[in-house]
Simulated scan of single mutants.
Amino acid sequence: MADVLKAGILYFLGVFTLGFILGAIRIFFLVPYTGPVFAVLVELPVILLVSWFFCRFLTRRFTVPTEPYERLLMGLIAFVCLMIGEALVAMFLQQGRMTDFFMTFDLPENRIGLAGQIAFALFPVLQSYADSKAGQ
């Protein structure tokens, strides 16, 4: 269980850091030329691809069991940490309230981003399923 917790937290930290860097690039360099929705659509495949391989590395490094419960827990830990981290960064940078953070999901680009975050959370389980099919 401790390995699942470690893997989930490191999964969050790695992807959050990458997302912070790519988000800054998106906001300052892409959004002014393409608009917010297209900029998110450009960023999303990059972060999901890196997340997929980083997740695979962590599940192997920490030998996270292939049982769905363990993998879901890893993804859930990473997802909850990610949402808390994003809310705190948004509140700090925009000096808003928590309700303001949740209101931003009315924007299409943030809904697309949320879909990507849900996929990120499901990667540990999807990889377990894919590995079991490949091993047959």
Score class of each variant (00 low, 15 high):
Leu49Asp: 00
Val15Ile: 15
Thr99Trp: 02
Glu109Phe: 12
Ala39Pro: 05
Phe20Ser: 07
Gly35His: 13
Tyr129Gly: 07
Phe62Thr: 09
Pro108Gly: 02
Arg26Glu: 08
Leu122Ile: 06
Met103Ile: 03
Ile77Ala: 01
Leu76Cys: 11
Leu126Gln: 06
Leu30Ile: 09
Ala134Ile: 02
Val31Asn: 07
Cys55Arg: 05
Leu73Thr: 08
Glu86Met: 13
Pro45Asn: 05
Ala39Leu: 09
Ala134Cys: 05
Glu70Pro: 00
Pro108Ile: 03
Leu58Met: 10
Phe53Ser: 06
Leu44Ser: 11
Phe120His: 13
Gly23Trp: 04
Phe16Met: 06
Arg71Ser: 07
Asp106Tyr: 03
Tyr129Trp: 14
Val42Gln: 06
Leu73Cys: 07
Ile77Tyr: 05
Leu18Val: 07
Asp106Ala: 13
Trp52Ile: 11
Gly135Val: 03
Arg60His: 13
Tyr11Leu: 15
Phe120Trp: 11
Pro124Lys: 06
Thr99Ile: 12
Pro124Gln: 04
Arg97Ile: 12
Val46Lys: 01
Ala87Cys: 14
Val46Ala: 00
Ser128Asp: 10
Phe102Met: 08
Leu58Asn: 13
Leu126Ile: 15
Val42Lys: 04
Thr99Pro: 01
Phe79Pro: 11
Met74Cys: 11
Phe101Arg: 06
Met83Val: 15
Leu88Arg: 06
Leu126Met: 14
Gly85Ser: 03
Gly85Val: 11
Leu93Val: 03
Pro65Thr: 02
Gly113Pro: 02
Gly135Pro: 00
Arg60Ala: 03
Val64Met: 06
Leu72Val: 01
Pro108Asn: 09
Gln94Trp: 10
Thr66Phe: 02
Val46Pro: 00
Ile21Leu: 13
Pro68Ala: 09
